[in-house]
Design a protein around this nucleic acid. Structure first.
Lengths: 210, 210, 210, 210
DNA sequence: AATGAATGAGAATTCATTCAT
DNA sequence: GATGAATGAATTCTCATTCAT
């Protein structure tokens, strides 16, 4: 086993164990043993148990966001891009189930907690996704393929919540819908909700009960 | 101080602390001290720390589900009932922010883990909500006010994911949209997505013009 | 072994081990085992390893200072009181060798370190001794039995340095003078240095070389 | 960067860090980083962390003792030499505050501990100072400028304790007397205590008037 | 029912030192 | 000489739970 591989061996083992048993039920001793390194080596490379988690998270987030940004940048219409993004989201998670389960299962909450009054750095990752979605919605609004009935940024936030919530419930088995079917459903419903063809605008919802 | 009061004092204090610091960062010693009882008393009433959490969760889930079931059972149309449910959801959480934060922050994952191959009892709570939503969707389908483009049960699951994900992101500050605005947005978009007025389904959306 | 005794058993064992092996070379596991209690019990009673040390220190400091204050308050002349204090100092340490060795050997330095810019609380103990000595010097100055050639408070500080340094060197074996002889020497030299009978005042030292 | 410079860079950085944070709170990794060398390099030059400390200590002790021996050897009277030694002591420490703080703060006690029943080598350094002081006291006794009321070697030991204790308390801020004032005070009081002019010994002080 | 002292099985982390390159 | 990745033993502290009173 080469030197470079020690680092990735640790990450692979940790991903696996975190996904299987949860973050807090996995001990650093276990990770070290399974990866065939000394416990100190974990700390040499990642500084702390949290550091291991953060590295896994960062690498995945970077990959995911890079993929999403690539899609958002190509020349299609807004609606097509939104479709593409939603498909990409579910395909990516299907391919990275293990690593994403780590995050879903028990994201170490203190990592997202604000420290000293400033938002945790991890939040920046999150907001990049809102930026991408906002961009796509704006594009669709201009090219006439999408008509958000609420402010673009709020709608982007809503979409993020939808993607997160549905993905989570499916992956944790809370609802009995596999990711592949979920992908088609979210795509279908979102486009319909944002469709410019629809006469029934969101505004109605704002106005009154009936 | 009567016996009943001790019990509720403990629950109130625990809700508060769990919401503020998270389940695992709250010690039983702390709960006991703030509630003004001995640590052993916690165990007389709730058997374990998990027992305290489960009691809080159960009480809230029962209230929530009872409210949702009441709404689902009245004589309105499917679309109106769905609107009502969504509004109820966000209003209820607005009124019970603290207790719900307990669940959002760091739900003790082992409580939802399957034990001995059988699904955790806590899952039953969850599935009741799917039942309610399925009922409403079916009603709307029959009275012509809703037209789900996917199987009713799957759509109900999707709606649960949407409600959970958007609520979570808002309450944890991951997106910058308050619950009240979110309520109107979710209501608007969901009705539009499920609207029978729209001929253009998500898959076919690109084609149809009228 | 009664319940009260657990606490004192821990203190006795800890004093012994700290004196013998030094603070940092003594593990909490060792203390617990020798005291016949669980390790957690240490933390139940003292909160931390430092807490154990601090308790030992405080109890001794309190005893010592109480004794010194009692002596300083009786009706003798300043010089007699100073003699008494010096004798008391060495006798007390002779009787409490073990506990004092704990402090001499390796006082956990971080305990005396200023935190957040404010002096450590432990300093207050120290300054009480300066107060006592200042009082005695002042008394001696008024009744004519002592004539400090430098400001009273500075001289008191000097005396504390003398007591500490000579005691330390003797107890750690750095100099080959037992405490009992040291006591007589310090008493003799201090009284002579502060004696009003001496023509050669400290002022000479201040003035010139010759 | 030449080889010599690496060595002294390490010593300078280590002195600084030891003085600031204490020996045990300074890690070898830190020293290496601040000195701009690899951690292994520390071990090439000094063999161990203790080795670094010992080198700093030895260099300073050698300088100090050489200076003291030089003073002790010149042709002045005993009293003048003692004055000179005391002034030298405080001046030297004033000029070498940082390095001396290293030793005061938390001298690694195991280095002074007897090993295999034999006194630690570091003790030899200490005893050289007693030799010097003994010499000076003897000289003063013969030329009539000093009259120790106790055996010369014991008195020398006492003086060392006085110098150590007062210096320590001042440098650690335990007493509020700067080194320069302390120097004059120690000089004044020591000469007075050892003065042949004073007939009144510590024990007999009360009696004699003239 | 209520108490709260006692428990004890962990778990993360530190860091001086080594050694192959 | 110089490097710095790897080591791994050692240690403090946590905290849910128990049980005698």
């Amino acid at each position: 086993m080469g030197e470079k591989n020690r680092r990735s061996a640790i990450l692979a083992v940790a991903s696996h164990l975190f996904a299987e048993k949860g973050y807090s039920n996995t001990t650093t001793a276990e990770i070290a043993q399974e990866a065939g390194v000394a416990e100190g080596t974990l700390y040499h490379h990642f500084g702390s148990k949290d550091g291991i988690f953060l590295t896994i998270f960062d690498e995945m987030a970077e990959e995911y966001l890079a993929g999403a940004e690539r899609l958002a940048g190509d020349g299609k219409t807004g609606a097509e891009t939104l479709s593409g993004l939603i498909r990409f989201h579910f395909e990516y998670l299907e391919r990275n189930k293990t690593r994403f389960l780590v995050i879903l299962r028990d994201f170490p909450n203190h990592l997202a907690a604000d420290r000293d009054g400033r938002p945790a750095e991890i939040r920046n990752r999150f907001s990049r996704m809102t930026d991408i979605l906002s961009l796509v919605l704006t594009k669709g609004f201009h090219d006439g393929t999408l008509r958000p009935s609420f402010p673009v940024r709020d709608t982007a936030g809503l979409l993020r919540g939808i993607l997160y919530g549905t993905t989570r419930h499916s992956m944790l088995g809370i609802i009995d819908v596999p990711l592949s079917r979920l992908s088609r459903m979210v795509e279908g419903y979102c486009l319909q909700a944002l469709s410019p063809d629809s006469r029934a605008g969101g505004k109605r919802g704002k106005g009154g009960k009936k």
